[in-house]
Design a protein around this nucleic acid. Structure first.
Lengths: 235, 235
DNA sequence: TACACTCTTATTGTCGACACTTTAATCTTT
DNA sequence: AAAGATTAAAGTGTCGACAATAAGAGTGTA
């Protein structure tokens, strides 16, 4: 049985849910990313296990994986807390992301096939048209953006890097974006940047592709950060 | 009770072992890194649990953490295998490491205090003298090298990056080095490179520091790779 | 012999109960 | 009343047993 994980981006790696802890992991992950479980809040194993209808052992298995995604933090004999999104943390994560996706982009310029490149270009055109129709709906923009980044990352053909970014870092980044609300004027600008990146990749210019990707992510991070500051000032 | 983890580098983050699974995790990790458990071999939960005198639940907790370190790979309903060290994997890991430690080095140039910088310089002098005495003993070289890299990484002051490198990647890198046997003519060269890096950091030249660190790691990776090829050819 | 199917066996996933640690509430002492 | 010790409550860590799944031996058929 193969179930496509519904985590806000259907085009992510189509995971295969085989065990109960797989399902609980995915469910809780979504709850955390979307803010249904408040950031910084403590997680009670007994309570969550009961809620999801599984034993504590199964739930703990799921918590372990959430820890691998950096979505919760555990302390021995004390318990589990949902990660807290602070401006400092945002900066840290985006510094790491920039370095890793920059690398991925350079490798993609070396390793992507013409077919893969053309698929991405077709995808961008498609995003452009739907974006004009669904203007303002940030969900589609986010999905499209994720899709683009996923394809570049996969194009690096570095499985360790792919795992690091797609499985261990991206949900945390999504959490920032979802809870900070990434949308607004950056949407159209991001689109142009995507175009420039895939063009650099097509020209096999790894150095330029890396540079553009780093700038692109830096701009995206700055955008979220500005919202952050607005919010914290508003309180 | 605070126990310093003996994993070949006493100067690593001094971890606090609180639970049984902590201890089992550290023990198995060392066994894998040092090759006592063969790479690629399947891990039997029942067998290992019995060997370490704990229940399977405790052992599984340890296996989860080993998976976070990328030292084992799990498949649902099938089991756990020790990671296999291939030339491809080496390349992948070193590409990631280069990007991350390059970033760490640039941040270190921005964030390290004069005190910290001086400590590293003192450390290098100390390594130089002991190295001359203990020439040829690769253990001291490796410890010294790890120590240097740890301090730079810590100097980045980016806790996410520190965690990623020190807790999730370094044991895997150690595994490559230990099982491939990193020593020989590179030892003294690496020392000079360390010196150049800390000088760049002292000059607050983040760009240069990053470049030098990337080259340094690249050379180290190439060194291991050459041994790899020798070995695989010899077979 | 090759292939498909069944059944057995071994291994992993899951459960409920118990042991230990932490936390806080209560009681004692000054 | 404040500080420290004691104890009760809640929560996490660990265990042994059972259920579900996968791998392999064995059987039968073409």
């Amino acid at each position: 049985m193969q179930i496509i994980v519904d985590n806000g981006c259907q085009l992510e790696v189509k995971n295969t849910i085989k065990t109960a802890s797989d399902q609980v992991f995915v469910d809780i992950r979504q709850a955390i990313v979307e803010g249904d479980i408040a950031q910084g809040s403590k997680i009670s194993e007994a309570e969550l296990a009961k809620y999801h209808g599984v034993s504590r052992a199964t739930l703990r298995e799921a918590l372990n994986r959430l820890e691998s995604c950096h979505l919760v933090e555990r302390k021995a004999n004390i318990g589990c807390r949902v990660v807290a999104l602070t401006p400092d943390k945002l900066l840290e994560v985006y510094q790491v992301r920039t370095a890793l996706e920059g690398l991925a982009c350079r490798l993609a310029a070396e390793n992507m096939t013409m077919t893969e490149i053309n698929e991405v270009k077709a995808l961008l055109n498609q995003h452009l048209s739907t974006q004009k129709v669904k203007q303002g709906e940030s969900y589609y923009q986010e999905e499209g953006d994720l899709d683009f980044h996923y394809r570049i990352i996969k194009g690096s053909k570095n499985s360790h890097l792919i795992h690091l970014l797609c499985n261990e870092l991206y949900q945390l980044i999504r959490m920032f974006r979802v809870q900070m609300g990434m949308n607004g004027p950056r949407v159209s600008k991001a689109f142009d940047e995507h175009l420039a990146i895939i063009n650099a990749i097509e020209s096999k210019d790894g150095e330029l592709a890396e540079l553009l990707m780093k700038r692109h992510i830096g701009a995206s991070g700055a955008n979220i950060k500005s919202r952050f500051n607005l919010e914290t000032v508003a309180e």
